[in-house]
Design a protein around this nucleic acid. Structure first.
Length: 468
RNA sequence: GUCCCCAUCGUCUAGUGGUCCAGGACGCCACCCUUUCACGGUGAAAACACGGGUUCGACCCCCGUUGGGGACGCCA
């Protein structure tokens, strides 16, 4: 059997990591079984759907490399098809027109709630079957009255709903546009989706969709409901509850493979393995290994994974992702050390690309000031050593970390100082702060010319601030 | 309220009746390394929600309790 999965987000808000994970699982499953992955935009809610949100979905998929074999399909472009199926259902008596006013429905609902009942449409128009083409109406699906719907969920096992729990849902609004539960059914059918992998908040919709499918004489697909990802407050991820859009992770300097690796392990495991390349995921992933329980986001672990990928991937690769972040910080790398060399030395001390960019400014720009707490290293007593080191560096022909190290080390030794005592003032002089990679490498990368300029500047600073 | 789902360290998880006084990872703490910051290394603390069964034997199977989540829209 040819496997076909789909990701069907609605462009009514940002695409957050919960959505990204279901997309990833669907994508992985299709890849693993050499099937097809379809992207479908569920934009039937014209009130809330936006172009920006649609673009965000497309951008996220591209950034993450979740390529689709078909689509993107837009439900708004398939209206004729939905209307056709609605007519078919109406003609075969499997759906009916409902003229109940919103007021009556609201009233009904509040009464039911007050009686501690589950709010349900009472089927008034199903019984009376009025027909007045001059009045506004919605179309409701005639849900079976008795019996039960059972389906074999691939992550939860057998799930059963009594039909008595289900009411006659609206499949077409009074303006004639079809609603979600109906469009999903038609699309999954038309697009020959074999496996529906989606969030467990859709479990309750499944029996309704199966009933519609049955009314259409179509065999339902296989369902797999993946558990929710909860915000740190333990509630469903939403705009209000700490949900962060996928693209924000891009903006914050995360690598796609780090996010994907993080997400794949949230709710799925392959023994004790933590690190998975994309191809590895695709080979090892299986729906049966998805956990049942909801999970919470653990930002520290994502950070750890991001660092892992920053320091293990080829610097050339990282450079591609890093450049835009340097640009936003107005750091021009055309003059200065090769970016790949900076990455090689900075990745292990940073957690995000943004952090690398922020902490690498001094490789490409002169220091304009010294951090407050760094100034204590620029004291009169170290001026002589600094001057001596500067002279020796000036005469150094072979500008290399090892040579630089020898010079600094020798001078420290001559004065009986620990290396750190000498390294720290130099560090402040060339970086403006107290933190940097090893001093010899830092100097090598900054380059001879700039190092001498900055050493001079530091010396001037010391003379100007010498206490009397 | 009704229905549905879920329940192992703080978090993500391994575990499918005996090999578990429960393993890994992140984080946290301590120590080592050290030229600041890190990387790395070593080690420590840290969990089977509770109560009943079933069984020679339960983290694992069944029932219940409690707790959490989701759904109940002319949203998706």
């Amino acid at each position: 059997m040819q496997i076909r999965t789909r990701f069907a987000p609605s462009p009514t808000g940002m695409l957050h990591i919960g959505g990204v994970r279901t997309a990833l699982y669907s994508w992985l499953y299709a890849k693993k079984l050499k099937g097809q992955f379809v992207l479908r935009i569920e934009d039937t809610d014209t009130e809330r759907s936006t172009k920006e949100a649609t673009q965000a979905i497309l951008d996220s998929m591209e950034w993450l490399g979740l390529t689709y074999d078909e689509g993107p399909f837009y439900q708004t472009e398939r209206m004729e098809r939905y209307k056709e199926v609605i007519k078919q259902l109406l003609n075969s008596g499997k759906a009916y027109r409902c003229y109940c006013s919103k007021e009556r429905l609201d009233d009904l609902r509040s009464k039911q709630l007050a009686n501690k009942e589950k709010p349900c449409y009472d089927g008034l128009c199903r019984k009376h079957n009025p027909d007045d083409p001059n009045q506004p109406f919605v179309v409701r699906f005639k849900n079976p009255k008795d019996g039960a719907v059972t389906f074999n969920d691939q992550v939860h096992g057998t799930i059963t709903f009594q039909n008595s729990e289900l009411d006659d849902l609206i499949i077409a609004r009074s303006d004639g546009t079809p609603t979600y539960n109906f469009c999903v059914v038609v699309d999954d059918m038309d697009m020959q989706i074999t496996h529906v992998i989606r969030g467990s908040d859709h479990i309750n919709n499944t029996p309704r969709q199966i009933n519609i499918l049955n009314a259409l004489d179509y065999t339902p697909p296989i369902y797999a409901h993946v558990p929710m990802i909860l915000g740190s407050d333990g509630k469903k991820l939403s705009k209000r509850h700490g949900a962060v859009s996928a693209m924000q992770f891009c903006d914050e300097g995360f690598l796609p493979e780090a996010l994907l690796n993080y997400l794949v392990r949230l709710g799925w495991a392959y023994g004790d393995q933590e690190i998975f390349s994309i191809t590895e995921m695709a080979n090892l992933f299986d729906i049966k290994d998805i956990n049942k329980a909801a999970s919470m986001v653990n930002p520290e672990k994502l950070l750890w994974l991001n660092q892992h990928y920053m320091k293990t991937k080829k610097p050339e690769e990282i450079a591609k992702y890093l450049r835009p972040h340097l640009e936003t910080l107005n750091i021009d790398t055309s003059n200065g050390p090769e970016l790949t060399k900076v990455i090689a030395i900075q990745a292990e001390r940073c957690h995000t690309l943004v952090e690398i960019a922020e902490k690498s400014r001094y490789f490409y720009q002169n220091v304009s000031s010294y951090e407050e707490k760094a100034q204590k290293h620029l004291k009169a007593e170290i001026a002589p050593v600094l001057t001596e080191i500067k002279t020796e560096l000036q005469n150094l022909a072979n500008w290399q970390a090892s040579e630089i190290h020898t010079i600094i080390n020798n001078n420290a030794g001559k004065l009986g100082l620990k290396l750190g005592k000498v390294a720290q003032p130099i560090r402040v002089a060339v970086t403006g702060g107290t933190v940097s990679p090893p001093i010899d490498i830092t100097l090598e990368l900054i380059g001879k010319e700039q190092v001498l300029v900055r050493l001079d500047k530091a010396l001037t600073f010391i003379y100007n601030h010498a206490s009397v």
